[in-house]
Design a protein around this nucleic acid. Sequence first.
DNA 1: TATGTCAAAGCGTCAA
DNA 2: TTGACGCTTTGACATA
Length: 228
Amino acid sequence: MAVFPINSSNLDLSISMPGFASSSTRPPLMKVRICVVRELDMNRVPTTGEAEEEWAVAPSAEEEEEESCINNGGTKPRKKLRLSTDQSRLLEESFRLNHTLNPKQKEALAMELKLKPRQVEVWFQNRRARSKLKQTEMECEYLKRCFGSLTEQNHRLQRELEELRAIKVAPSAIVSCHDRQPPLSTSTITMCPRCERITSSKAAIAAATKPSKVVTSILKLHQPSQAC
DNA sequence: TATGTCAAAGCGTCAA
DNA sequence: TTGACGCTTTGACATA
């Protein structure tokens, strides 16, 4: 059973109750005892020292159900329930342990939280959805970073390629890997004129241009000894 | 007043 | 057929 304190220190712990809106739509019955009250935790109990007479009683579960039927039936607009911090905390703890509930767990949790099993079920559904959304957003951020990194790497490789192409290779140094030639000198940068692939040793390339790992691995795949 | 958040409703899908 | 779930939308409420 929920109660409504008038204590202004509780104003931040607020919750709207079905049928008890903070606006002028609040039923006259509530206005009698609550003048500055805002909506608050439906399950909060008065702490010691708080005068019990300052608390107004919220509708029971049955009354709420009845009311929700009325709302669904259609004249009254539906009211928003806001879970208390304690309820949210307990739900979060349960969610950490299990992202889904079996009927027994749902029932038990609902009893503990003084909510309807359906509300617990809905909360878990929405929580799973939020979890998935968060996961998707994280993946999106990760992919964005990957994209940025790969773009940068691509630009770097393009520049490397330009630099390599710009290197004036002496005609005598051009050696085809398709020809049976003596082993290449480590100080010579060569390019296969047939497939236009660099066939120099890693040492020569590294000394000349400091290639990236990708270039190095490409070179590994295309050693002069290998066929084009 | 625009916008974000979130409980809840509605509907389709799927497995038992 | 039924219950659980995911997805989308709705509507109340809070806040800047």
